[in-house]
């Protein structure tokens, strides 16, 4: 017969002030002590652009980061719901598996890179290479995205409410992109396609989740023409 499992009484919210505690202490808590602690919400103060804040979470929890994050905020996230009340540096939510990451400000380069799942919402602009090599993540950007976004995107959806820069969707596989504003240029093998009913419903769903007030019919669909799927020895490096 199993004995009574000891439970440690803790408050439902835990606060980490990064002016006092290192990022490593925060992440060790999230990795090793969160599960079973009863903590449902973690608040992070004074992030001051530190790298690797809340990376590698593997448990449902709500996280509020009160300020600007550095590189790789919420990278590899699984299950958690993370909000950054500021801007983030390179690689926010990179390789995310599930859950939600919301950035209230702008995101620097490679936002959502290689993400497998979950939803990344950026309320401001995203810089270059947003969604590079995305593998199933949904990304919704309230502003514009920079050059080379969704490069080699394999799966998932990128919704851009503003304009897109040069080389959008270069060498796409099966990721699908939706752009409301102007597209400066499409990358190799990316093409505009008509919006289907399924596209409209999908975009409506993502816009609702993100809280952006746009009409899905305003968006253009961009997907792979699939002409690069097979090696063409006669292409002579002209794509």
């Amino acid at each position: 017969m199993a004995g009574v499992t000891a439970t440690v009484p803790t408050a439902a919210t835990r606060v980490f002030d990064l002016a006092d505690a290192p990022v490593r202490a925060l992440n060790q808590f999230l990795h090793h002590e969160l599960r079973g602690s009863g903590v449902q919400r973690v608040e992070i103060l004074n992030p001051n652009g530190a790298h690797n804040i809340a990376v590698g979470i593997d448990h449902p929890v709500t996280i509020d980061i009160q300020g600007h994050g550095g590189y790789y905020v919420a990278g590899m996230n699984k299950h958690a719901d993370v909000t950054v009340h500021g801007n983030v540096g390179w690689g926010v939510a990179e390789n995310m598996m599930s859950g939600t990451v919301r950035v209230k400000g702008f995101a620097s380069e490679s936002a959502g890179a290689t993400g497998h799942g979950g939803t990344l919402i950026i309320e401001g602009d995203a810089s270059l290479r947003c969604g590079i090599s995305m593998k199933g993540i949904d990304i919704v950007v309230g502003g514009r995205v920079g050059n080379f976004s969704a490069f080699m995107g394999q799966a998932g959806r990128l919704v851009v409410c503003g304009d897109a820069g040069d080389g959008l969707g270069d060498s796409l596989y099966e990721a699908v992109l939706y752009v409301r504003g102007k597209i400066k240029s499409l990358g190799a093998d990316a093409q505009e396609e008509p919006m289907t009913e399924a596209d409209l419903a999908g975009v409506a769903d993502l816009l609702k989740k993100a809280g952006f007030p746009y009409d899905p019919t305003e968006f253009k669909r961009v997907a792979s023409a699939r002409s690069l799927y097979h090696w063409n020895a006669d292409a002579n490096q002209e794509y």
């Binding site: 001051n48 652009g49 530190a50 790298h51 600007h68 550095g70 590189y71 801007n87 540096g89």
Partner: peptide, 8 residues
């Protein structure tokens, strides 16, 4: 190069 240089 990064925001952390400006945070103070």
């Amino acid at each position: 190069s990064e925001f952390r240089a400006l945070a103070h």
